[in-house]
Design a protein around this nucleic acid. Structure first.
Length: 1150
RNA sequence: AGUCCCGUAGCUCAGCUGGUUAGAGCGCUACACUGAUAAUGUAGAGGUCCCCAGUUCAAGUCUGGGCGGGACUACCA
């Protein structure tokens, strides 16, 4: 063990990073931080699994710094912290990068490459950057348990996921339905949004559009609309796809949009009518000039059609009104033909009323479901429900429909001629461009039926299939869904119990998302992912969902026994045996599961539903699947005592996960356990480049975390990210800021430590003396201890509230402003020279305590340097029982040591000193020149008492001999008065401005009177105003005839007359300074004794003689002589005053 | 398009429940200090608190509406 505190030549945080890492590894500190908390309450953290198929970026440092900070903090608070690492391994990005690296497309899977080979490639690809990730985790000091990470492709993980799906299936929350997706009839395939966003897919095309008239049904719900109406009443709705009109089942209005009822004539038939449309769009359908035309003058066929606005309604009022089906081909089953409201409705184009065909529009489908509107479906020969248009893009033929359905629901007469027609001519190779389209023919039909208001060509952007160049349809496709809407209320209720940081994300983005919840579409047509564990007979009548490998294994055995399968592909697997080796024998991925054919209870064959599940389900399942629950670790979920591993106390990820991981965690936990998955959450913002642009490799503005850590060390990087802006604000990342943190915060802290070490080593301080009671320590020490305890309080509160930014900023402010710039600066003299007395000891003990406490407070945020600082301090003193700061207990504040009055006093001292230094500078009076006195006007006793307490500190700081307190009896102080708006405002309100004006006019006599009587009456705007001292702020402004500075309520005058005595002392201090410089330049040890010779000069001979002892004591000079001359080349010249130079020789005393 | 975040000095950010000279750091300029020394201190210059309306005696702060940047979710008659 060393007998000295370690001293540094310079601060190398990058090296410290490496040293500390090495020590952590040698001492196994991370595991100790858990094992030493054995039996304590747990703190559960969930790691949102990253995908290792991409390189980690600087933004990962951000999220992980936050995570790490709170896990370390809770550890220091005594909790046993759970934090298991994990990897997200499934999904489209993996598939895409495999395809890129193999140079294949999805088309090639199964032909150029087998599914087996493809999957094997995915498995390799997904862990490609594991090493880099682990390295970053290590280097940045992110403590997470990587011994046994969860991996979503692992069979055991998948098994837990299956178990969860089975629970949902059993609860009736898993069902097969459809969703509206882009679909290419020509290619016979659904398209992903990714494919749709290929260049050239959206093209401007001219389509026939129609404004149709939907006839209102007159009943009690619509009666209010008939006021003043004497012709048939219609809603008007516009569509760019008239072929969807036969599938219309609702009309949608904006609840806040204003609609008008207009009396006019149908332009094609000339029939009188009354129509409803959005007020904002009136002018685009009715020419305002025609409003003047008398109705009687109108004849059918006239170009100018008169109209008259009868009434206005809001969309909300229209909701619920029923209308007649526009085209009566097929009757829907269920509620339909009703006006509903939707927020997405605008008045930008059309009529402000949107035609809803739930089978052919995503918005339509959603809004219809929310309002209980049925889609228009037909039943085919197999008994399956189908939209009116089949997958080839044709209206279903009557022959292909179920005959009973045709009899009950289909109007064969009107539908007949349309049956089998392609809705887009492009789908029929035999048709040329001249052939009229369904859109046109339907529009013509509507015109004839008095149901069309306007039919015209309209150019708009429409998506096309990138493979066939033909238009895409939005089409319902089969998918498996989780019925999250069934638990919507529960989701919302549970969300309200979660502590969101920031709160607005929880109530806003996340809360709104829950309010507008739709069922979770679980299906993905992919290859690399968790397969849906559902087998069905071909007709879909029999369904089995498996919640474990064991169940599936048993069914396979049954199928093999019945001869449905040749052999069990999972033969050799031992059900119920949970060793990894056992699970390595099987593969639950495609294509292996696809080959499994099972036997239904009725003897039919069952095939797996080919979909994979949404990868978000994988990650949302991690609270369970990371522990292979419920197959293993079941006891951790229902612990006999204390807390188990569910739910999490804390999670943190980017705000982009709100509808991703945050939602899936929340949804799964709610559905499985009616519990939250996490209690506290920080959703952090993005890391942008310094100009506020998104970082990307392509733009070359991405910052490499490894380089940054290598250069600066992790601590400044982490500190910068955590303190520069609140975690939930976006961070404009600027390396310059990291460097600033290094200099400002770590540099200062390091300097403070080094200063301490330097003198402590000289004096042999090792904190072996008894601790001096705080009450017995000097004012300055009690002050910094008070601030330190206030700091502990603030940091603890901030971290308890998940606000790392506040914590970090408070620590930094303490270290820079108070500890270094005030405490150490004022205490310097206490450390160097002099006796090793109680004051010196107190100075050491106080500084030591501050440093070690700061190390602990900063440890969660800056784990490396804090540990180094802690270790350097503790190595010698052995005061702390723990070998690492991360095993130590987090400090707790001692309220008894917080002295707000003292903090106030020191604040006065700091401000007074800086004001006096300001005055000196103005007069070009060096601080080395002592001055006689300062004068301070005193307005009340309390102020005087406070000032007196810190008088000596101020005087020595500014090098002035004494303070003179001025009471105002002498009348030499000029005062200033200002109204106190906070007290007067509420009392006098409106006349506040006049009062302020009157008060500003107060004379010195007025002010004196107010102070004396503690009351002053004013008459303002015929109102009596009573002022008490509390209603005004009286400050001193000036002391005529003196050099004065004023700041707030503090006024100080400086006496700048310099007596001979003072002048001499100034000269003496000048010499001290010069001699000290020479000592330093000559590389003398701080403790070396010296002899000094000074060549005589009338300017300073007297001063040197008079202050000989003083100079000697300050510079450790044994012998100080004034000499007549110096030898040539001996000594050096120093400037003592303007144009006065002294020859001086400084020698070591041997 | 909807939801959410952000907009204060050249840059990065504070500014608590509204209260009258709008702050800090960096950068710039000047000066000072000096046995913490590749440090440090003090000051100066630098502001349309994004814009417009409203509430109020009083708005950087509250309300409404815009504008700009960003994120997510949707893609539409």
């Amino acid at each position: 063990m060393s007998d000295k505190f370690r001293e540094y030549k310079q601060l190398d945080l990058s090296q410290i990073n490496k040293d500390v890492l090495k020590r952590w590894e040698e001492d196994d500190t991370f595991h100790k931080s858990i094992s030493t908390r054995e039996g304590n309450p747990t703190f559960v953290f969930y790691e949102g699994p990253p995908s290792a198929n991409g390189m980690p970026g600087i933004h990962h440092v951000m999220a992980r710094a936050i995570k790490d900070t709170f896990c370390r903090y809770k550890t220091m608070k005594g909790f046993r912290v759970h934090r298991k690492a994990g990897w997200d391994t499934h999904g489209l990005p993996v598939e895409l990068s495999v395809e890129k690296s193999l140079g294949i497309t999805k088309e090639d899977i199964g032909s150029k490459i087998t599914v087996e080979e493809y999957n094997a490639a995915c498995r390799r690809e997904v862990m490609k950057y594991t090493k880099e990730w682990e390295q970053l985790t290590r280097q940045m000091g992110y403590w997470v348990n990587m011994d046994d990470p969860y991996i979503t492709y692992d069979n055991r993980y998948i098994e837990s996921v299956w178990w969860l799906l089975k629970q949902l299936f059993d609860k009736g929350l898993l069902y097969k339905g459809y969703t509206i997706q882009p679909y290419s009839p020509a290619a016979g395939t659904g398209l992903s949004s990714h494919e749709l966003n290929q260049p050239g897919c959206y093209r401007d095309v001219k389509d026939t559009t129609a404004v149709a008239q939907f006839s209102v049904i007159r009943d009690e719900k619509s009666e209010f609309l008939y006021e003043g109406v004497d012709s048939p009443l219609y809603f008007m709705a516009w569509t760019t796809t008239p072929w969807t009109l036969p599938s219309n089942t609702a009309l949608c209005v904006g609840p806040k949009i204003t609609y008008v009822k207009v009396k006019s004539f149908n332009p094609y038939t000339g029939e009188p009518m009354t129509v409803i449309l959005a007020k904002d769009l009136l002018a685009s359908h009715f020419n305002p000039k025609n409003a003047e035309i008398p109705f009687d003058d109108y004849k059918p066929g006239d170009k100018k059609i008169p109209y008259q606005v009868l009434e206005e309604y809001t969309g909300a009022q229209l909701a619920g009104v029923n209308y007649q089906q526009l085209i009566d081909w097929v009757k829907p089953d269920g509620d339909a033909f009703r006006v509903i409201t939707g927020d997405f409705v605008t008045t930008e184009d059309g009529t402000g009323i949107v035609h809803i065909a739930p089978t052919f529009g995503a918005d339509d489908d959603r809004v219809a479901k929310q309002n209980g509107i049925a889609p228009l479906l037909v039943i085919d020969k197999d008994g399956k429900k189908q939209p009116l248009v089949d997958k080839r893009g044709r209206f279903y033929t009557i022959e292909e429909m179920d005959s009973a359905f045709v009899a009950s629901n289909v109007n064969a007469q009107s539908y007949g001629e349309w049956s089998g027609r392609y809705v887009k001519n492009e789908y029929d190779e035999t048709l040329d461009e001249s052939y009229s389209t369904v859109d046109v023919d339907l529009s013509v039909m509507l015109k004839k039926d008095n149901k069309a208001f306007k039919v015209e060509k309209h150019e708009h952007s429409y998506p096309h299939c990138w493979r066939t160049d033909k238009p895409v349809l939005y089409y319902p496709l089969d998918s498996w869904f989780i019925r999250t809407t069934a638990v919507k209320d529960k989701l919302i209720a549970l969300n309200n119990t979660i502590n969101w940081k920031p709160q607005s994300t929880g109530t806003g983005r996340f809360g709104n998302w829950l309010e507008n919840l739709v069922d979770w579409n679980l299906s993905r047509s992919r290859f690399w992912g968790t397969p849906l564990p559902i087998w069905r007979t071909e007709d879909g009548a029999q369904t089995k969902c498996f919640g474990s490998v064991e169940e599936l294994f048993a069914e396979i055995e049954k199928a093999v026994a019945a001869g449905v399968m040749d052999k069990n592909p999972y033969a050799g697997f031992e059900p119920g045996q949970y060793e990894p080796a056992n699970y390595d024998k099987i593969d639950l991925h495609r294509p292996y599961v696809d080959d499994i054919v099972l036997l239904a209870d009725n003897g039919e064959k069952m095939f797996r539903e080919p979909d994979l599940i949404d990868v978000w389900f994988d990650s949302g399942a991690m609270p369970y699947a990371q522990n292979h629950y419920p197959f293993e670790n079941k006891e951790k979920y229902q612990p006999a005592e204390g807390r188990g591993v569910f739910p999490a106390d804390f999670i943190a990820e980017g705000v982009d996960q709100t509808r991703g991981w945050f939602f899936t965690l929340h949804a799964i936990a709610t559905m499985i356990d009616e519990s939250v998955a996490f209690r506290n959450i920080i959703s952090n913002g993005l890391v942008l480049d310094k100009n506020g642009n998104k970082m990307s490799k392509r733009l070359g503005n991405a910052v490499d975390p490894f380089d940054t850590i290598e250069k600066y060390g992790s601590d400044p990087l982490r500190w910068y990210m955590l303190t520069n802006s609140a975690p939930w604000d976006n961070l404009k990342f600027d390396v310059g800021g990291v460097d600033e943190v290094r200099r400002k915060f770590f540099g200062t802290l390091y300097n403070t430590y080094n200063f301490f070490a330097l003198y402590a080593n000289i004096d042999g301080f090792s904190f072996e003396e008894d601790e001096i009671a705080v009450a017995e320590r000097p004012e300055l020490d009690r002050w910094i201890i008070s601030l330190l305890n206030s700091l502990v309080k603030e940091v603890s509160e901030s971290l308890e509230n998940y606000e790392p930014t506040r914590a970090g900023r408070a620590i930094s402010e303490f270290v820079n402003e108070n500890l270094s710039n005030w405490f150490v600066r004022l205490s310097r003299k206490r450390y160097w020279g002099g006796e090793y007395d109680k004051d010196k000891l107190s100075a050491y003990q106080t500084l030591y305590t501050c440093l070690v406490t700061v190390a602990k407070l900063a440890a969660p945020l800056a784990p490396f340097y804090s540990d180094q600082l802690y270790t350097d301090l503790n190595k010698l003193t052995g005061l702390e029982p723990d070998q690492s700061v991360h095993l130590a207990e987090f400090p707790t504040a001692n309220d008894a040591l917080i002295d707000k009055d003292l903090e106030q006093k020191m604040d006065i001292a700091q401000r007074a000193s800086s004001m006096i230094l300001g005055l000196r500078r103005k007069e070009r009076l060096k601080v080395r020149q002592p001055l006689a006195k300062i004068m301070v006007p005193v307005l009340n006793g309390r102020f005087k008492e406070q000032f007196e307490a810190v008088e000596n500190i101020i005087l020595s700081e500014v090098n002035v001999k004494e303070v003179e307190y001025l009471t105002d009896t002498a009348g030499i102080i000029k005062k200033k008065i200002k109204p106190n708006f906070k007290t007067l405002g509420p009392k006098y309100g409106k006349i506040m401005k006049q009062i302020a004006a009157s008060v500003a006019q107060f004379s010195q006599t007025d002010i004196a009177e107010l102070e004396k009587n503690e009351n002053f009456s004013l008459n303002v705007a015929d109102q009596q105003v009573e002022l008490t001292p509390a209603d005004v702020e009286i400050t001193t402004e000036d002391i005529p005839g003196w050099l004065v500075a004023t700041e707030g309520e503090l006024t100080i005058a400086l006496d700048i007359n310099i007596s001979d005595e003072l002048k001499q002392e100034g000269i003496a201090r000048e010499f001290i300074n010069k001699i000290q410089n020479i000592r330093k330049e000559s590389d003398f040890e701080v403790t070396d004794r010296i002899n000094v010779k000074i060549m005589k000069h009338d300017f300073y001979n007297q001063a040197v003689e008079n202050f000989k002892d003083y100079i000697g004591s300050q510079t450790l000079c044994e012998e100080l002589r004034l000499v007549d001359s110096l030898k040539d080349g001996e000594g050096q010249l120093v400037e003592i005053d303007q144009d006065v130079e002294a020859g001086i020789v400084v020698e070591k005393n041997r």
